[in-house]
Structures are given as C-alpha cells and as structure tokens.
Computed example of a mutant assay.
Amino acid sequence: MTIFLYSLMCFIFGTTFLAIKVGVDEGFPPFLSAGIRFLAAGAILYLILLARKKTSWKILLRKELMFTGFTLTFITFACLYWAEQFVSSGIAAVLSASAPIIIILIQTAFMGVRIDKASIVGIILGFAGVFFLFLPGLSITWNTFWIIGCGIILFGQFGYATGSIWSGKTISTFKKESPMALNAVQMIYGGLFLLLLSLFAGEPAPNITIPGLLSILYLTVAGSMIAHTIYYYLVAKTNAFLPSTWLYVSPLIALTIGHFFYNEAVHPVMLVGVLLILSSLILVNLGKILQFVSIKKMASSK
C-alpha cells in the first residue's frame, strides 16, 4: 500500500506542471487560476477537517500561517504560473526541484547551519545544472522571455525555501494541530493573496474551455488535495524523508509527459542539466539518505 501511494503521489506531483501549462495556454490568467486552485483546495480541506473536529476556527487568525501562505504558496506559485507562459512544464519541474539547494543556502547564510562537503559539491553541481538548462536559451536567437521565465521560477523557490523552513517551526509551535489543517489554512491565505494579485494586475476574464476547466479541477483535487494528503499520510506512516523524495522522481515524469503528450522540446544539452540537478539533490540530502538506508537495514534485520 505504501509503495502504491508513494508512486501515485509522485505521478500526481509530476503531472501538475503540465496541468498548469495547459490551463495557462488555454487562456486562464496565471494568478487567477492559481488563486482559485489554492483557495478552493484549502477551503474544502479545512471544512472537512473542521466537520470532523480535527481542527478549530482559531488557526484561521494565526499570522504564522498567513506568512507561510505568503511565502510557500503565494510567492512560489505566482512565479511558477506566470513563468509557464514561456517555459515548458518539464523544465519548470526541474527548476522547481532546486528548492532543497536553496534551503541549504538560506540555512547556511542566515541561520548559522554548518554545511558539509557533500552539500557544497551538491550546490556547485546544482548551479552547473541550472546553467546547462539555461544554455539552449542563450543562443543566437536569444529567447528573452524564456530566460526571464526560468529566472522567475528560481526566484520563486526562495519563497518555497523560506516557507518550508518557517512551516517547520510553525508545525512545532502548533503541535496539537493536524499538519493537514495547517497546510489547508496556509493554502487559503496563499490563494487569497494570488487572487488579490490577479485583481491588482488587471488580469482579463478567463477564456473558458473544457481543457482549462479540467486543468484547474485536476490541480485542485489531485494536486492540492489528494497528493498532499498522501504526503502527510506517508510522513505519519514512514518518516519525513521518504515522501520528500518525490523531488527526485517528479521532474523526470514531468519531462517525459511534457515531451510525449504535449510536444514540448527537450534539447540534449538540457538533459545534462537535469542529471546535474538531480545529482545535486542526492548530494545535499546524502546524510538523510544514508540515515534512511541505515534505519531500513536495522528494521529488516530484526
């Protein structure tokens, strides 16, 4: 059951990037569609948990969750949705996988966390991988919006990294609250911020099409509700590290389905970047990987 749920979670996370691309290409304004997705998903999950008495109204008023929603959801997905107007879903997924590298950089620069040699090598490989991803766009034709889009996605990962670090502290602060409830509330705030951005940006009314509507429905139900529920279930049933390894798998899924089902071009040079970034993820998480393998060996020997 665990293997099935893990595989389903990775598949859903991997396909969300193409679903975002489809929605944007179909004429749904990026900030509006992102806001609808997260506000709807967060509200539905929160009301379900409230009905089951798994949470309370009080956490809606917590500024900690407002900040988490602003960084983890608003900044990250405002950047991602906007950039996918110009960047393929597969490359967007690979660039989004750089978040663990940025988390380590923030922890080292601002939190006094010491960095080991494997992580240093991993960070160098990660930056080299990003360079190779950018290289095809730095051609004679100079695809300006493609380059800007890639840069915006990377900027969004600073929001994700900050929100991830902050949410870890928030979970410790609200130990009696379900992590799913905390996630639901931060999605509500993130969705509201995205809708406000859509309003201030003057986004036009969406072009209503069946593929566009299906993309928002899929992202809301599968991407933001089912996949995240599976994630927290796996954290509870296994450990915090195993579910997070979707970052190693989902970019490959996104690249594959984007190429074969949406005719997205994958330049051979980009594949070098993909391998370097995935290798960097392994190195920056090497300690956790070795610890996880050690625990599994001890469990199997008993």
Rank of each mutant, 00 (worst) to 15 (best):
T16Y: 09
Q186V: 11
K63F: 14
T2M: 15
E203A: 03
I115H: 08
I153W: 07
K53G: 12
P206L: 06
G112D: 05
L61F: 15
N285H: 11
I277P: 01
G112W: 11
L72S: 01
G258V: 00
L196S: 10
M225A: 03
I153G: 08
L199S: 04
A227P: 06
G273N: 06
I282E: 05
V284T: 05
L255R: 05
I101S: 04
C79Y: 04
I106D: 09
F70D: 05
L283V: 08
M111Q: 14
P243E: 03
K117R: 15
L199D: 02
L281Y: 06
L138N: 04
F11Y: 06
Y233F: 14
I101E: 05
I153T: 07
A78K: 07
F145E: 14
V269S: 11
I208P: 00
D25Y: 10
S119P: 06
F86M: 02
I230A: 05
A227L: 00
N207I: 12
N207E: 12
S300T: 15
L213D: 08
A201D: 13
L60Y: 06
G191T: 03
I208K: 04
S89R: 09
A128F: 03
H228V: 15
M66A: 14
L283S: 01
G69Q: 07
I104W: 02
A43M: 14
Y46G: 00
T209A: 01
S89M: 08
T245G: 10
I208V: 11
G129D: 10
A254M: 00
I103S: 07
W166M: 12
I123K: 02
L234Q: 02
G163R: 02
A83S: 10
T73P: 01
G14M: 01
G202K: 10
S300A: 15
G90M: 07
L45R: 04
A83C: 09
